[in-house]
Each structure stands twice: as structure tokens, then as C-alpha cells.
Simulated assay, not measured.
Amino acid sequence: MTATTTTTNVPGGEQSTPGRLARFRDLVAAEWIKHRSLRSTWIAYGATALAVVGFNAGVAYDTYSHWVPGDRVSFVRDGISLQEAFTSNAAVLMALALSAIGALVIVGEYSTGTNRMTFAAVPARRSVMAAKAVVVTVVTTVFGTVVAGVSFAVTQAVLDLRDAGVSIGDPGAFRVVLASALLAPVCGLAGLALGAVIRHTASTMVTSVVVLLVLPLFLADGRHWSAVAGHALPYRAWLRLVDVGYSPPAFPWTVGGAWMVYAVWACAACAVAVTSVQVRDQ
């Protein structure tokens, strides 16, 4: 008697027996093992966290050490305490670092050729990329939450030595922390998407710098088209969210619009990362 095995076509053109198709949670677990098994990944996370918190704490300490008596009321009223809770330099550093880490999740496999083994073991490429996106989202969200929370606690503790610190319950404080925390997964997913499309380390890093840093500086608010284009970028959305004492410019936009930019970038990045493996060969 001859045993027969029924096969089905799966994305990517390969065939596999239905019983051997990996369940999605198993794929997520496998991608998590890949992510945490690389020591360089945790070194990158650790170095980024120390640098970001250090930037913010340094600014707060500089304010403390050069404090002018009598500035406390205007300092808090003008929202400077919240500006120093998470500075723009720290945000740029975190955005670039997280986009690089997100890109290396996929670019590293293409550069070493291990992607071939991955897709051979699991021909359902979209599921593999979706699992990568889940891992990047969860890890970077936890990272951003910890870094933003620690930065807020440290900076406000330093400023409180001059009675100029604020609490998380003060108006706008929670929004500053949340916006700074969620900047991490947005940029991490953007890096993953760029890496999935470009697939070359140097080119991906250059593109990340252009998209996340250069374009926000190039697109000013002086003209309508430039303001609208600038408002569609993650870094400019972060600037709007952390600007508690917002003074409307010539072309203003809302907090809701800034949150929408975050959501659209995250969803679009996931879609690009997942679909890119289908439209291109290995």
C-alpha cells in the first residue's frame, strides 16, 4: 500500500503539508528567540537607553546648576519642565537608533543568507514577516516606555531640587511621556519596512536618516505644501505632541492629527514589511 500526502500551495510558491505549517504564535516565539539571542541587539538597546536618559538628565542638571532665583513660576508655566523631560536631541537619537535596530531584524538575515533557511522552513513568508513585526512592536514599545518613564522621573527629580519639577498628573505630562514612548515602535517598524524593501544595510541606514531626520528639518512651516508634508512625518508629530504650550503657526494642526500620523506610519510600515516579501524574490 502506498501512502499519499496531500500538499497545498502557500505564499512564496513553495508547497508544504498543512500539518507542518507553523502556527503564528510559534513563529512569534521563534522570532523572539532570534531577537534576544543576539548580544549586539541588547548592547544597542542598552547604549541607546543610556544615551537618551543621559541627554535628558544632562539638560535638567544644566538647568539646576545654572538656576536663576525667582524663575520657578515662569519656568513651570511656560512648560520648560516638560520640554526637559524628553528633549528633541534625545528624541532624534532614539528615532535613529530604533530605526536601525528595526532594520537589522531583517537586513541582518538577508546579508548573512539565513533568510533562505527561514523561508525554507516556513514558506509562508507573510506570516514570518508579520511575526517579526509583532516582536519589533512589543520589544520597542516596552523599550520606549521604560526610557521615557525613567527620563521623566530622573529629569523631574533633578528639577525638583529647585522646586521646578512636575508630576505625571500635571497637564500635558502624561502626553509627553506617552508620545516619547510610542516614538520608539513607530521608528522601529519604519526601519523594519525600509529594511524589508531595500535589503542592504548601508542604503537602509541612509534612507532612515533622510526620512526621520533630514526631511523634518527641510520641510518648514512657511508654505502650505511644506507644512502638510512635514506634519506627515513621525518626528514632527512627536514635536506637536510634546508641545504642551502650543502656539498655532500659519498652518496649525491638532493633537489628534499627530496621533493619527503615529498610527498611519505604524500600520503602513507593517503592511509594507509583510507584503514586500511577496513582490520580490529572496
Rank of each mutant, 00 (worst) to 15 (best):
R20K: 12
Y246K: 06
F55P: 01
G149R: 00
R77L: 01
P185W: 04
A269Q: 12
A181W: 07
T207H: 13
K34D: 01
Y45W: 13
L241R: 04
A103S: 14
V210W: 11
A22S: 06
T155H: 09
V261P: 02
R20H: 04
S203D: 06
Y262R: 02
V264W: 13
A232Y: 09
A91S: 11
A103Y: 00
A258C: 07
T41L: 10
S37F: 03
Y45R: 08
S247W: 03
T254F: 12
Q156D: 02
L178E: 02
T201I: 05
A124C: 11
V158N: 03
L82W: 08
G144M: 14
V264K: 06
L183N: 01
V68G: 05
M1D: 09
A49K: 06
V177F: 00
A90Y: 02
P69G: 01
R36A: 05
G195L: 12
D26R: 12
I33H: 10
L178P: 00
Q15D: 04
F55R: 14
E84R: 11
L192S: 08
M117I: 05
L96Y: 15
G256W: 12
F251H: 15
T87K: 07
S127N: 06
V209R: 00
S74D: 04
E109L: 13
I168Q: 07
R162N: 01
V255E: 14
T118L: 11
T137G: 15
S276R: 15
V210M: 11
A232W: 10
E109A: 15
A173F: 05
R116E: 09
